[in-house]
Structure formats: structure tokens, C-alpha cells
Computed example of a mutant assay.
Amino acid sequence: MGSEEGMSDLDLDEKVFKIFKDFMARVTKFEELVAVGSRLLAGFQQGLEFLRRPPIDNTSMFVKHIINANQTKRIQLYLEAGCINIDDRLQNVSKLDTCQLGLLDHLSKGRSIINQLEFLMEDVTSAMQTAKGNSSSSRDESTEMNEQAPTSDEEGNGSSHLKKHRATDFAILMGITYSMVKQDYMMQERIVSSLSPKSSSGELESYCLMWSLRPLVNDEIMHQAWKLIPPT
């Protein structure tokens, strides 16, 4: 990444801002994964609930009348199978397997993104610590030179944005966002590890709700983080 000796405040702001943009791009990828995982979890719930569908109530006089009026081998086999079409049962068993494998793949990809976010956090920490270790006189001199140097319109726009938001602003938001995303991932990890054919309907409904609501992620902070990236 090159030497950071003599880095000015503006240089540090620009460096951290670039890391911040890379960080938020990976957060976007994670959020896309969350949406895919939500659909897989809903598919698992639907498949399992279909297989649990209760049989026809033979005690109902109305149902008895219909069955007695249609005493065919097909109806008899259907009743013996628990009122579930064999093909439908096989399709839903396959759906359960597909969704569960998909969720495991989701966790693998999510873990990779979490690791990438952690590396970027380390990059920011390193840049901040290195800049802090430089003498204040060197930083002041470098800043003065940067202020006197002519800049293009494009550079002026970038500097204007960075004057409003310093490296510490980006670093703090990265830290908060990383913590929220990691907790969200850990919640998803616990949900997936808890899934089984024995999961109750109430549990599955709660899992789907928690996954979609993402209670550990503060939307206001996420919006604040995105506002720090100017439109291109």
C-alpha cells in the first residue's frame, strides 16, 4: 500500500475514504446474500409445512359422504398416503434438501464477506495508527503544502466532501457497521444450525421473521453510512 510516513490529514482522509467505499461495497454484497437466504428459509418452511399438512378429517359427516360416494382405488391410495400426492411429497422433500444446502452455502459466502470486512477494518486501524505516530509538525507542514497546491475541479469536489467528513468519521461508522453485520450473520448462523424436520411451525415462523426484520441492524446508521458516499 506504500509508505504512510509524513501523511497529511487530507491524505489520511482520502485513504480511509477509499477503504470505506470498498467496505460498503462488501456490505452491499452481504445484504444481497441476506435476501437470497430469506427466500431459501421461506422455501424450507413451506416445504416442511406441506409435509406436515394434516390428513382429511374422516369424522366429518360431509367428508365421509364425499369419500363414500367416490370409493375408488385412487381415493383409497390417496387417503392411505396421508392425503398427500406422492409426487408432491417427493418434490417437497427435494425442496427441503435444496433449501438447506443453499442456506449452508449462504453461510459460507457470508463468512467470507465478514472476513473481508474484518481485513478492511484492520487496514483502517493500521492507517490511523501510522498517521497518529507521525509528528504533528510533519502533518501540519504536509497539510499546508496540500492547501497551497493547485487542484482540478474534480479534486476540489473530492476535497470538499472530505472536509466535511474526516477519517475518524469513516472509521467509527465502519466499526459500528461491522459489529451490526457480524451480529446479523451470527444470528443467521444460529438459525440455520437450528433447522431440522423437527422444527416446530412456531419456530420456523419466528426464524423467518427474525431473518427478514434483522433486529440487530440499525437502518438509520446504515443510511448514515451510505450518505457519506457522494453520488457518482
Rank of each mutant, 00 (worst) to 15 (best):
E144L: 09
C208G: 12
S206R: 14
S137W: 07
V34Y: 00
Y78V: 04
M210V: 14
S8I: 02
S152A: 04
G102Y: 02
M145P: 00
Q100G: 03
L79P: 04
R190S: 15
D13V: 02
R139A: 12
I221R: 02
M61S: 06
S159C: 03
F23T: 00
K227Q: 07
S179N: 07
M174T: 09
M128R: 15
N115F: 08
F119G: 06
L41C: 14
K164V: 09
D184Y: 01
S194C: 13
I56M: 14
E147N: 09
N68W: 03
K18I: 00
S201F: 11
R139Q: 14
L213R: 12
T143E: 12
P55D: 14
T151Y: 06
L90C: 04
L216C: 07
R74L: 09
S142W: 01
F20G: 01
F62W: 06
D57I: 11
K164A: 13
S60H: 09
I172C: 04
R52V: 10
E205Q: 15
M7N: 01
Q224V: 05
S152G: 02
A171W: 04
M222H: 04
V217H: 00
I229G: 02
A225D: 00
A225V: 01
Y78R: 01
K132H: 08
D9I: 06
Y78M: 01
S94V: 06
S159R: 14
Q46K: 12
K95N: 10
T28E: 09
G156T: 08
N146H: 08
S94L: 07
N85H: 05
L96I: 15
W211A: 15
D123L: 07
G202S: 14
I221D: 01
G2Y: 02
G156R: 09
S200I: 13
S94N: 13
G202N: 15
S126M: 08
F50T: 13
Q188G: 14
R39I: 07
I229F: 07
L40K: 13
S108I: 02
C208T: 15
K182C: 11
I67C: 03
Q91I: 08
T59G: 11
R139P: 02
P55N: 14
R53I: 08
E80G: 03
G158V: 10
G156D: 11
E4H: 11
L90W: 08
G156Q: 09
E14N: 05
I176C: 00
A25Y: 10
G2R: 02
N218M: 05
K95R: 14
Y178L: 13
N218H: 08
N58L: 15
H165P: 00
P197G: 12
I176E: 07
R166Y: 02
T72M: 01
R139M: 13
K182M: 04
G102C: 04
A127G: 00
T59H: 11
I19L: 05
L41E: 12
R190M: 13
A167N: 02
N218L: 05
P215Q: 05
D57P: 10
K109N: 09
F23H: 07
L48M: 12
D87E: 09
L51I: 14
T28L: 03
T59P: 01
K29T: 06
E14P: 00
P54Y: 10
T143N: 09
E147K: 08
E4Q: 11
N85R: 02
G6N: 11
F170G: 03
I67P: 02
K198Y: 12
Q91A: 15
L195P: 11
I84A: 05
Q46E: 15
E122D: 15
G2S: 10
S152H: 02
E154I: 11
